[in-house]
Amino acid sequence: MAAHKPRLAVFKFASCDGCQLSLLDCEDEFLALAGAVEIAYFPEASSTMAKGPYDLALVEGSITTAHDAQRILKIRRQSKRLITIGACATAGGIQALRNFADAQEMLASVYASPHYISTLAKSTPIALHVPVDFELPGCPVNKAELLEVLSAFLIGRKPVIGAHSVCMDCKARGTPCVLVQGTPCLGPVTHAGCGAICPAYRRGCYGCFGPMEQPNTASLATVWAKTGATKRDIHRAFRGITAAAPAFAKEGDAHDG
């Protein structure tokens, strides 16, 4: 029986490590999870680094180097199922702000010898490089959702992850709407999953779970403008943690300059 445990691998690309840390933050479940699967490759947690093939690969981070663009192809070939976790892997992450700027100029501003540096002009999500079986958004991912996705894939069913907006979760939570009180909030266009925490802490959502399905960003921008937000405020809001997600990128472009 033990020999047939599903083999789990966790891979990292350009990221802060926070999404894979969410796995270790499952303090009550971690040892049970470790018993249910074979943790074949998870360098942040273990020195056992077994070769593939793997039954399930969790991928954190975005592609920002030529080397990583090759590495993900190899990982995909070794993995029966591949799930991307977090804003970097699913949308390019905060580092995708370079996509809207002159990356070479950015490099020169950070590094003494920019010619040493090998990095791509754009930070891109994993799904632009290889087929992905499921994308779990969030910066960071919600650990309960991460456990749900893991359980679903281990059992062989579809994960139950809502695709509605943060707005709906605010209603469910009974949080008074901050937008109607005049606080700019991305909740109406942002993918649920965080538990609608920002409005519960009396601030506007800043979109770290990325766009929901079919968001009406233009309409929200109009509402923001009516509450006194400037063009620059709106531009900055859409150029955030998930700036390169197509819906947010487009709305950001509309308020540029």
Binding site: F13, A14, G61, T64, T65, D68, G93, I94, Q95, L97, R98, A101, A103, M106, L107, S109, V110, I117, T119, S123, R236
Partner: peptide, 13 residues
């Protein structure tokens, strides 16, 4: 580790 250029992307924020 891949560079993420934080100091550069903070400019203008």
């Amino acid at each position: 580790e891949a560079p993420r250029l934080f100091e550069a992307l903070l400019r203008g924020r």
